[in-house]
Design a protein around this nucleic acid. Sequence first.
DNA 1: GGCTATAATATGTATAGACAAATAAACGAA
DNA 2: TTCGTTTATTTGTCTATACATATTATAGCC
Lengths: 244, 244
Amino acid sequence: MRLEAKRGAPGAALYQRIRNDLEVKIVSGAWPPGHRVPFEHELMETYSCSRMTVNKVLSALADAGLVVRRRRAGSFVSRPRVQSAVLQIPDLKAEIEKRGERYGYRLLDLRKRTASAQDRVRLGIGGRATVLALRCRHEAEEQPFAIEDRLINVQAVPDVLKQDFSIMPPNTWLVGHVPWTEAEHRITACNADNDVAAELGIEPGAACLVIERRTWRNSEPITAVRLIHPGQLYDLIARFTPTA
Amino acid sequence: MRLEAKRGAPGAALYQRIRNDLEVKIVSGAWPPGHRVPFEHELMETYSCSRMTVNKVLSALADAGLVVRRRRAGSFVSRPRVQSAVLQIPDLKAEIEKRGERYGYRLLDLRKRTASAQDRVRLGIGGRATVLALRCRHEAEEQPFAIEDRLINVQAVPDVLKQDFSIMPPNTWLVGHVPWTEAEHRITACNADNDVAAELGIEPGAACLVIERRTWRNSEPITAVRLIHPGQLYDLIARFTPTA
DNA sequence: GGCTATAATATGTATAGACAAATAAACGAA
DNA sequence: TTCGTTTATTTGTCTATACATATTATAGCC
């Protein structure tokens, strides 16, 4: 979102002030869900401006999901406010360093192989394929922070074979070099098995937060990754303000 | 005037087609981060349209974070693509019924009390306050699906005392009647304690996914809720496509 | 060179006017 | 009544134009 002067302040652009006015009415509850907001020509009167200007505001509110627009009927405050939030799925290296902690990384295992049936399911590919399978550990201040279990579709990203993942985490390289068009995240909880417990330095059976992410580029699978965090150690936090 | 507009158009609006063209160039990587996208007057030429139309496209791309615009310099493809996703935090009743399963609900405990120190921390309030504390269970097809542990700030929502939460889950009432302006979500994993295990019908120690949500209305705390799901039973899925 | 004033240019916002498309509401026929 | 048709209204998109504003490039000066 572009930042102008203050959104509602005098001096801000006219359409920003109009938008702010309407948003306040909506999020404050003064206009409850289902309420019909004034017609464009009414808002033109109210603000002494052209229709293009109020149209821009209402279209933006519709894009933001605060109103629904229907020809001939008008614009209406959206029904049930969806409980949605922008979730930041961080690059662990960047995230840890942002906290001012020392980041550590260790490659536990790497192998190139013809995709097994299980690999094909995880990546969502059919037929023969070559994959790079990695397992590595992320550390913050010497403490294990996450186990990463990743498959990369070599066909989609041939350059990946030239990278040295013993010094650089695969995610850091991928986000910088491989654009993606679609991603899916799945978040679950599981009990640590013996391997994971040993690698993370926790008790077997301890609860772990699991984040699985799959990315595609124009429908071609790129990578599937599973990040396993000790449950107490890691929070995913999402903040949401409708105005945003 | 509009002779050009119909050419090669599958019905979509002109600015939609332009936007799509540019997005493809960006997300495909054809225009890498930092690349200068054509000036508005160049796009006018390319698409034989007015500046307002290409301006609308570029402003929308800027709002979406795909480009950065700088006066006198031009518009540039944004730097690092952030790993973010819109996470749908569903209303459980709606979610379960959408799957075609039977929703069940049971109020386990409800009490009105003066906020304890712990309550005040959870809600983020200071001083004296009255809260409503609920504990309830959500079921899908007779199976326990989640334990909900909720605090409601009675000052912020006095009407809450008039509701009968033995038949209607608090979330269903709240989302329909109490607008909020800010929300925070926190997702963690924990091992089921004996109480939770009994209520969910799982083994003590089994991994659970915990979603904590706090909402405010103009900085006034409304409610704090903790949802505890059996780890195997529940997935949070977030899909993200830049095109939206 | 380094500094400042000036011009050039791209974006930011706003207007008035035009026609298209969808559809709620009124109307009329069976 | 009920069904189809017409009409009126609202939103959707686009144009051509205008001026404001930020910022880069340049020219001129010391």
